[in-house]
């Protein structure tokens, strides 16, 4: 049974050439047409993700990965096409939603965990486990602005794994964080796999993608360029990128 079904998703953004951001301009030139540039972020994307599958999405910057993930998460509305998700979808796609640098780690755990769906009681019950996993027990009442970016990601990840879900969407979670913590994250990935969770995972970390994903979708210019077993698709993508880089390098 598939956990996620995506059919012919299309999404384009209109980017105004000259942004009319003032009322003043509306009054001064009420009939001037604003020229728009159309950016087709997704031009007909279809795929299915099986229940319990680890599914990777890779592709160069601007290929539509994040837009696709936001549509799966129901944050953006597609212009056309259909998305069906079976099972409890985690409500977030990035770590540390709602984090505020001016507030303490304690406050931020409460903010973030509440936004992710936990009740006050659930947060209280899990608070120690969160701080312990993040290895930040000593900094509970420190303001978040005094944390390094690695520490912030550790805290964010530790909260996110406390949230119950069946389908998880993740956008670039491994970008920061030291190696030790990354291994810890990988251990939780293994656990999710064992528990039969469905995970859709956007990343530039191709090694991690190959290691964890069953299948990988390669997105380029808003269309599916390849879809198949992780090692195969990642290998093809690497070869392609290397080829692109060589002529560039020779012209420099």
């Amino acid at each position: 049974m598939s956990a996620i079904e995506v059919r012919e998703i299309r999404k384009s953004f209109l980017i105004p050439h000259e942004q009319r951001t003032m009322f003043k301009e509306l009054f001064l030139h009420p009939f001037r047409r604003v020229a728009y540039e159309r950016n087709d972020a997704l031009a007909g994307v279809s795929f299915e993700v099986e229940k319990g599958e680890f599914f990777g999405i890779i592709g160069p910057n601007g290929s539509g990965k994040s837009t696709l993930l936001r549509i799966l998460a129901r944050i953006y509305r597609p212009d056309a096409g259909e998305v069906r998700v079976q099972g409890k979808l985690s409500p977030f796609i990035e770590l540390g939603v709602g984090f505020n640098l001016e507030l303490s780690a304690r406050d931020n755990v409460w903010i973030n965990a509440s936004l992710l769906g936990l009740t006050r009681r659930e947060i209280a019950d899990r608070f120690d486990a969160i701080m312990e996993f993040a290895e930040l027990d000593r900094f509970v009442d420190q303001k978040l602005k005094n944390f390094s970016s690695g520490m912030q990601v550790r805290l964010a990840y530790s909260i996110s794994i406390q949230v119950p879900f069946e389908v998880l969407l993740l956008d670039e979670v491994l970008a920061v964080g030291d190696e030790g913590f990354q291994e810890k994250c990988f251990a939780t990935f293994d656990e999710m796999r064992r528990d039969g969770k469905t995970v859709v995972f956007v990343s530039h970390d191709l090694d991690a993608v190959t290691r964890f994903c069953d299948r990988v979708l390669l997105l380029r210019d808003g269309v599916v360029e390849a879809l198949g077993p992780a090692a195969e698709v990642v290998g093809a993508y690497r070869a392609e990128e290397a080829e692109r880089r060589v002529p560039e390098a020779s012209t420099v």
């Binding site: 709602g98 505020n100 406050d107 409460w110 903010i111 936004l115």
Partner: peptide, 21 residues
């Protein structure tokens, strides 16, 4: 209930930030 919790968090954070510090 979930949406009410989000409501509460945003309201309280706004209030805290206004006077904290």
């Amino acid at each position: 209930a979930y949406h009410l919790r989000i409501l509460r968090v945003i309201a309280e954070v706004e209030f805290k930030l206004k006077y904290a510090g």
